[in-house]
Amino acid sequence: MAWYFFRRVLQMIPVFIGATFLIYFMVFALPGDPVLAMFGDKTPSPAIVAELRAQYNLDKPFIVQYLLYLGGLFTFDFGTSFSGRPVSDLLASAFPITFKLAMLAIAFEAIAGIAIGLFAGLRKGKLFDASALVVSLLLISVPTFVIGFVLQYVFAVQLGWVNATVGQGAPLKDLILPAIVLASVSFAYIVRLTRTSVSDNLGADYVRTATAKGLSRGRVVRVHVLRNSLIPVVTFLGTDIGALMVGAIVTEGIFNIKGVGGTVYQAIIRGEGPTVVSFVAVMVIIFMVANLLVDLLYALLDPRIRYAK
């Protein structure tokens, strides 16, 4: 297990360096003035331009610029936002809110997705299964922001059950609807994945053997079918964190949540390029770290990984 963890961290280092380099390269090494390009149609004040040039060391060779940026990342210096505030300051207030929202979303998509996927897999070809498939396909087809508008309109505006926007401090009850919106697409994927995985595992030899041993149907399903079906679902959760981040930008924008996603959303809308770039870089880093954690969870679930040399 320790060896596995060590190896995963080791593998992550070049990926981390490569990915941050890619982002940095895309922003600063492409033709044109990167600082001006960040502002799009708007004209920034010369002071901000000068500060950005200094911050990104644009006077130095490209590779030095990147190394200085990378060094900054390790000291939690993520750059400066459009308004001149350090990104790390903005993060400190925004991250906890997004974390809370993301945890709610993951809890929802995992619990509901696995439960519905399990029932659909056990009743493959029946009405419940068919409806679960149709609903999941629909959820994947409709963009998150449309689901967001519609749910916001129906539950907040029409029915008045919840607030249309999230209030100060992001109380939990305000976050429930945004979390459902955020989780919707991933929920659909988890339903489909669990269903396939469960129906595959139902046909596995070890499940037949477990039945032959005299175990009850319920125990066979819980201990052998479900447990084994969770392995691909956990792997999916790893890559899904990336989708959740994109979703967070959209969802937090719609519900006016002042989290990481909301900040990026506002920055994009206002054309504040530096803020966007800095925040997205941080999101990529979070994505990688989260993936590492999911890999550990995966190892806990699958002894073949855990004991691999």
Partner: peptide, 13 residues
Amino acid sequence: PQDPMSNLNPVWN
């Protein structure tokens, strides 16, 4: 069962 490789659940000891 026939195939010892696939008849034990890999995730339980």
